[in-house]
């Protein structure tokens, strides 16, 4: 599904990613872990097409198509979804209008008619129940005045609405209490299917107790320095990142 080859990227002339190789297949859950500043969020930005990141070398294909050639909205319609580390507040734009625009753009891209108002509201209701989102949240402006936990739940709700092929969860666990963490993780697990994939970007093992990865990669200093099964996350939790840093220096 996703193939990243020798990816180099910089922000303001500073090289952040220094040769990433990664392959994600349908049905898999990958965790990317690493200390602050290792390049985790930059990788998410490259995958979603954020303009401030400049790719200097390498290639990314998504279901065989050149991802780097696509505008952010095309990537989304092709099935890439980013759960933002810091979801943006948009005053004056209601969740309903926002989601209606997004869902219908996705449908148009697939050659489908826009949903009728009643079908759309029905879909919203179903997906809210699925991910256990308080129905009042969708009556408000996008993320406006939401608590940290509400914002993250709202990201998962949007994911449920858009049914992406590849979901990237960028530090979705940061700032969440244990109850919210459980809701978010349950939502992700319910949406998991054999034909889609998830990349979980996180500092901590905690989220991975709920969303169990098939592979864990450790990103450090712009490179993936270690890849293994889920046991790697536990080992990392036990030994700390110094283990990796020292390993790198040794």
């Amino acid at each position: 599904m996703l193939v990243i080859k020798d990816l180099h990227a910089k922000i303001n002339d500073k090289e952040i990613l220094k040769g990433i190789n990664l392959e994600v297949k349908a049905g898999e859950v990958h965790a990317i872990m690493g200390p602050n500043g290792s390049g985790k969020s930059t990788l998410a930005s490259v995958l979603t097409g954020r303009e401030l990141v400049e790719v200097t070398q390498g290639a990314i294909t998504f279901n065989g198509k050149d991802l780097l050639e696509m505008a952010p909205e095309i990537r989304a319609r092709e099935g890439i979804f980013l759960s933002f580390q810091y979801p943006v507040e948009i005053p004056g734009v209601s969740m309903v209008n926002f989601m209606k625009a997004a869902v219908n753009e996705h449908r148009k891209y697939r050659g489908l008619e826009p949903l009728t108002a009643s079908d759309f509201l029905k879909l919203m209701r179903e997906r809210k129940e699925l991910v256990e989102i308080d129905s009042a949240l969708t009556n408000r402006s996008v993320n406006e005045g939401f608590s940290g936990g509400e914002k993250k739940k709202n990201e998962i709700f949007q994911m449920a609405m858009l049914e992406p092929k590849l979901a990237i969860l960028d530090e979705t666990d940061s700032g969440l209490d244990i109850d919210a963490l459980r809701v978010v993780a349950n939502g992700v697990n319910k949406l998991k299917r054999p034909d889609n994939a998830v990349i979980v970007i996180t500092h901590y093992q905690r989220l991975l107790d709920y969303i169990v990865p098939d592979y864990v990669h450790i990103l450090y200093n712009g490179r993936i320095v270690k890849s293994a099964g889920k046991e790697l996350a536990l080992e990392l939790e036990e030994k700390g990142y110094d283990w990796i840093k020292n390993g790198e220096n040794a």
Binding site: A71, F81, V88, G92, F98, A102, Y109
Partner: peptide, 27 residues
């Protein structure tokens, strides 16, 4: 940031701008 957020959900740039402007005046 809001524009990028909307585009990352599949909304075309022009449409995203319109939604933002619409939200701005709806206040």
């Amino acid at each position: 940031d809001a524009l990028f957020y909307m585009r990352a959900r599949g909304i075309a740039e022009r449409e995203a701008k319109l939604l933002l402007m619409f939200g701005f005046v709806h206040e």
